[in-house]
Simulated scan of single mutants.
Amino acid sequence: MTIAAAVVLILTVTGIAGTQATLRASASTSARSVVLSAGTADLSLTTLSLDTTALYPGLTLVGAVTASNTGNVPLKLGVAGLTMPSGSAANALSQSLVVGVRIVPSASACTASAATPTWSGSAASAPAGTLGTTLPTASSQVLCVSVSLPIAAPAASQGQSASGIRLRISGTQA
C-alpha cells in the first residue's frame, strides 16, 4: 500500500467515526408578567309592550323589544325558554297561546303580517332555540315578539285573561 492510499484510508476511517452532539438553546420572557382577562357577556332588553286589543281565534298581537349587547364579547341570540301560567293561573286561553320571536330591521317592521317567527313556543312545547343571529359588541337588534290565539282555540278561552307569561331571551358567547 502506498503512503497516499494510507492517508486516504485514515481520513475515511476518521470521517466515518465522527462526533455527535445535541444542541440546545433557551431564553426567558421579559421580566414583565402577562395578564389575561376573561370577557363579559351582558345582554339587556327593553320592556315589551303589546297592543291591548282583545285576542280572538286567528289574531296575532306583536310588540318590539330591543336587545343590546353591553358586554365585550359577541353574543348569539336565542330563546332560553317560555314559562306559561301554571296551577290555578292556567286557563284555556293561556294554554292555547302561541308565542313567537323573530329578528326585524326596526320596530316599525314588527307587524303581525310580517314573516313567520324564527322561534315559537306554547304551553305544550317551548324548546330552547336560536334566533339565527349574532349580536356584535356595543350593538343592538330589534326582536319582534308575537302572541297568537290559533283558529282552533277552544271556546272555553272566551272571556279569559292570561298573565305571568315569561319569555327568556338568551345571549351566548359566539
Rank of each mutant, 00 (worst) to 15 (best):
T134F: 06
V7Y: 14
T2S: 15
A138C: 00
N69G: 04
I151H: 11
I151D: 14
T172A: 08
W119K: 02
I10Q: 10
G87Y: 04
C110G: 04
T66L: 02
S88G: 08
L43R: 07
L50W: 03
G132T: 03
G129P: 09
A152T: 10
R166H: 08
V73H: 13
L143T: 06
G171C: 04
T172W: 15
A155F: 07
S113I: 05
I16S: 04
A21E: 10
L75D: 03
A156I: 04
A31Q: 12
S161P: 11
V99G: 02
A155S: 11
A31D: 14
A112I: 06
G78M: 06
T29W: 03
G81T: 07
T70G: 10
G18I: 05
A90P: 11
S163D: 15
S68N: 14
T172M: 09
V73C: 10
S86P: 00
G18T: 15
S28D: 09
A112G: 06
T130E: 15
G121Q: 03
G132S: 02
L11E: 12
S140N: 09
A162E: 06
Y56I: 14
N91Q: 06
G129W: 12
L93Y: 10
A5W: 03
I16M: 11
R102C: 01
G78H: 00
Q20M: 13
L131N: 12
A114M: 01
V98H: 04
A4T: 03
G78T: 04
V7F: 12
T19N: 14
V62L: 00
T118F: 05
L61N: 06
V79A: 09
T70S: 12
L77C: 07
S161R: 13
V34Y: 12
R166L: 13
V62A: 05
T2I: 03
